[in-house]
Computed example of a mutant assay.
Amino acid sequence: MIRGLCSALTTVQERVAYSGSLEGFALGVNRLHSWLGHAVLDDAQARNSTAFQRVATDFMMEADPDNPGGFLGPSGGFKGLIHNGPCIAAVAAFVIAQVLKVFTYWYSERRWDATRLIGSGGMPSSHTGCVVALTTAIGVLNGTSSEAFAVGLVFSLVVMYDASGVRLHAGRQASVLNMIITELPPDHPVSDTRPLRDTLGHTPLQVTVGAMLGMVVGYIVGVTYLKN
């Protein structure tokens, strides 16, 4: 067993030296993956364990010498993210929502505030847009009957409820506490406390607009990746 492990590690080293790239390293790791599966299978057969034989067989089937997967494979890492439609939809919706906050803030306050690009709260809800776009893209690509869509839908509902419920009231409480702190005498122990951030949650309207934005972005990205 130790001899086989040394042989597999030597293969990894040779692959890296030959290609000088992560793809070569991935091929070596894939070889090690396959060898470990065979080692586990041999041990399971020796112990006459049917359950471990099935696990070892599935483990070996994941290793394809011609197309190594995982983070280091051709479809892994950042290359994989570029081809992941739901992930692109989520990021795009989040960025668009954050940019829109700058303009909606100017419309309501009549002044520009660049910090709205990275701040929470405001119109529209970027968190809602992000999760709804993710769920919508999954629905377009995998269908609404898929398990992934169900997970995304429940996740989206929880985020939307949290944004318009817990986070909204936490922000309002922070506003009240800030007003109380300003009325304290200078010698009070908490009089010099930094103001609490009160732009945490979203109103139901902000959440609704964020959800609409997410559905539009998720549908467009999903259809684009569906054609590809």
Rank of each mutant, 00 (worst) to 15 (best):
H127T: 04
A150P: 05
T199N: 14
S19P: 03
E23A: 12
Y219G: 13
V99D: 03
N178F: 00
T182R: 12
F52H: 13
M160F: 07
W35M: 15
G73K: 03
S145N: 14
S49R: 04
D113W: 01
F59C: 12
A17Q: 09
I181S: 04
T208A: 15
D187S: 12
A8E: 09
L32M: 15
F155E: 00
G122F: 02
L134T: 06
A89C: 06
Q206S: 00
L177C: 05
E183R: 12
V159F: 03
G73W: 03
E62A: 08
V223W: 01
T11F: 09
L184C: 04
Y18N: 14
T182M: 08
V209D: 01
S108G: 03
G37W: 04
W112C: 11
V102T: 08
D192W: 01
L205D: 04
W112H: 07
R47S: 13
R3D: 10
T208C: 14
D113Y: 02
A63G: 10
D192F: 01
S7E: 15
N30E: 13
L153W: 07
T193E: 05
A97R: 02
D64E: 05
G80K: 06
A56E: 06
V223H: 05
E147P: 13
R110L: 00
P204D: 09
A114M: 13
A93W: 02
C130G: 03
H188P: 10
L213K: 00
T11E: 13
I82M: 13
T193M: 02
R167N: 12
G129I: 15
G4C: 03
G210L: 07
D192E: 14
F59D: 08
F52P: 01
D66I: 12
M179K: 15
V12A: 11
M160N: 11
S156A: 13
H83E: 14
T128R: 03
G210P: 06
L134Y: 07
G28L: 10
L200V: 03
V140E: 01
F103A: 14
A51P: 05
F59G: 08
W106V: 12
Y107T: 09
S175W: 05
P204E: 07
L168H: 09
A17M: 12
V221A: 04
G171S: 02
R54Q: 09
A44N: 04
T104I: 01
S125T: 09
L196W: 04
V207K: 09
T115K: 12
T136C: 02
H127Y: 06
N84Y: 03
S175A: 09
I180V: 12
L117M: 14
Q13F: 05
Q13C: 10
P65E: 02
E183P: 10
L27A: 15
V166Q: 13
